[in-house]
């Protein structure tokens, strides 16, 4: 997918002729400070907001894991998954994979934060969309739960290998889950690096590439 887009809100330029090629089947992590247009980029890819420019090879179906789980409070977990069109068999199968089969008939108010996010992950994968968008889905979770969910996500991704764009503030998260990491600043991509990972997630890896990424995040400017 080739992207060349701009987006302004009034006078404020959020994405400034941003050019990005996303390869099929890769997990692309987008790092950047707050307000740099990361979520705007995802919303454009999801078709939720207008933009100027063009997206070649855009997918007409997307799975979106939002920062908050966005579950319907009046429906059970299974009903929430059926809401996006999944059938009974698929739901059972998916609930097993995200390890919340026992929550099938519970309503969101009876679930923990981690369980809710598992439902959101299940919903995104059940959509069978060729493009997955993830907007800091693990941000409010504690470390151990985060790591468990990284594994759940990576396991599900491995089955169909959809193209995924993960937006995050967390360099460790980006490096653990991404095949490629880009840094967004002032509406442009200022750094683009391949992690070289083949199996995911990868924890605690130290490399020159990661150091360079950290340097860029701390204020330097560099292109690979």
């Amino acid at each position: 997918m080739d992207i060349r887009i701009s987006k302004t809100y009034g006078e404020r330029v959020v994405l400034d002729d941003l050019a990005l090629a996303i390869n099929e089947g890769e997990i692309l992590c987008v790092l950047g400070d707050s307000g740099t247009g990361k979520t705007t980029l995802l919303n454009i890819l999801a078709g939720l907001i207008d933009f100027t420019g063009e997206i070649e090879g855009a997918s007409d179906r997307v799975g979106y894991i939002f920062q908050e789980p966005r579950l319907l409070a009046n429906l059970t977990v299974a009903e929430n998954l059926a809401y996006v069109g999944a059938d009974e068999r698929e739901i059972e199968h998916m609930l097993e994979k995200v390890e919340i089969s026992d929550c099938r008939n519970k309503r969101p108010c009876a679930l923990s934060g981690g369980e809710k996010q598992r439902v959101a992950i299940a919903r995104a994968f059940l959509s069978n969309a060729p493009l997955l968008l993830l907007d800091e889905p693990f941000v409010s979770l504690d470390t151990s739960l985060k790591i468990r969910l990284y594994r759940v996500f990576a396991r599900l991704w491995e089955e169909r290998k959809p193209t995924a764009v993960l937006v995050t503030h967390d360099i460790e998260e980006a490096w653990s889950l991404g095949h490629r990491v880009v840094v967004l600043r002032d509406g442009k991509i200022v750094f683009d690096v391949r992690t070289g990972h083949t199996t995911l997630p990868v924890f605690g890896e130290q490399s020159e590439k990661k150091k360079a990424l950290l340097k860029v995040l701390l204020g330097g400017d560099q292109d690979e």
């Binding site: 939720l48 179906r61 939002f66 908050e68 966005r70 809401y83």
Partner: peptide, 24 residues
């Protein structure tokens, strides 16, 4: 609004949106 947006993203049919999201 977040649930409306989620329903748009997942292309939930109008009938389902009305009965599961709007009416409740």
């Amino acid at each position: 609004k977040d649930l409306i947006e989620m329903s748009r993203v997942y292309r939930v049919p109008l009938k389902k949106r009305v009965f599961c999201l709007y009416l409740p």
